[in-house]
Amino acid sequence: MKIVMVPSGFKECLDAEEVALAMERGAKRFDRKADVEIVPMIDGGEGFAKTIIRLKAGKIIYREVTGPVGEKILSHFGIFVENGKKIAVIEMAAVAGLKLVPRHQRNPLETTTYGVGELILSALDLGVDQILFGCGDSGTSDGGVGMAQALGAQFLDTRSKPIQVRSVVDLMKVRHIDTSFLDERLSTVPIDVACNWKNLLCGDQGVARVFGPQKGATPEQVELLSEALDHYAALIKKTVALDVRYLPGSGASGGLGAGLIAFAGATLYPRFEIIKNYIQIEEKIRNADVVFTAEGSLDFQTPNGKIPSEVARIAKKHHIPVIAITGTIGQGAELNYNAGIDAYLSIIPKPTTLEKAMINAPKWIEDSTEAALRQVSIGLTIAKRISSLKGVLQK
Rank of each mutant, 00 (worst) to 15 (best):
F77L: 00
T369V: 03
E12V: 02
E223Q: 14
S138T: 12
F133Y: 14
V311A: 02
K238T: 14
A315T: 06
I52Y: 04
N360Y: 13
T218Y: 05
P248E: 02
K2M: 14
I53Y: 07
P308Q: 07
L126N: 10
V81E: 15
A234I: 12
V311I: 11
T369P: 09
I275E: 10
G97R: 09
L224P: 12
C202M: 06
R106G: 09
I281W: 06
A357M: 13
P349W: 06
K238I: 13
L335T: 12
I163S: 01
A16D: 05
T140E: 08
F48T: 01
F10R: 10
A262M: 05
R54P: 06
T328G: 11
G330P: 11
G26L: 02
I52R: 01
G146V: 07
R313V: 02
V222S: 11
G259S: 08
A94N: 05
A22H: 11
V244I: 12
A94T: 07
K33V: 10
S250A: 13
T158P: 01
A88N: 01
N336K: 02
K395H: 14
A294L: 08
V376Q: 12
H104Q: 15
K237G: 11
P108L: 08
K284N: 03
V69W: 07
E184N: 15
T302P: 04
N196F: 13
G305L: 03
C135P: 01
F155I: 12
V193A: 09
R286P: 05
R63Q: 15
A22S: 15
V19R: 08
I274Y: 02
I307C: 03
D289K: 00
A94Y: 04
Q105D: 14
L225F: 12
V222Y: 10
K395L: 14
F80C: 07
K85P: 08
Y337T: 04
A312T: 07
E227P: 02
G127V: 01
R245V: 04
S250P: 09
V291E: 03
G97W: 03
G47I: 05
G249S: 06
H104V: 14
A208V: 01
E283K: 14
A228G: 11
F80P: 04
L124W: 08
L100R: 10
I382D: 08
L151K: 09
G216I: 01
G143R: 01
G305I: 08
P219D: 06
F181T: 15
Q154D: 12
I325P: 03
V4A: 01
D204I: 13
R159A: 15
I87Q: 01
S141R: 09
R313F: 00
P68G: 08
L247W: 11
G45M: 06
K356C: 04
K215T: 00
V322A: 00
P270G: 11
D129I: 08
A333L: 00
A333M: 05
G144A: 01
T66Y: 05
I90V: 12
K237E: 15
K72P: 05
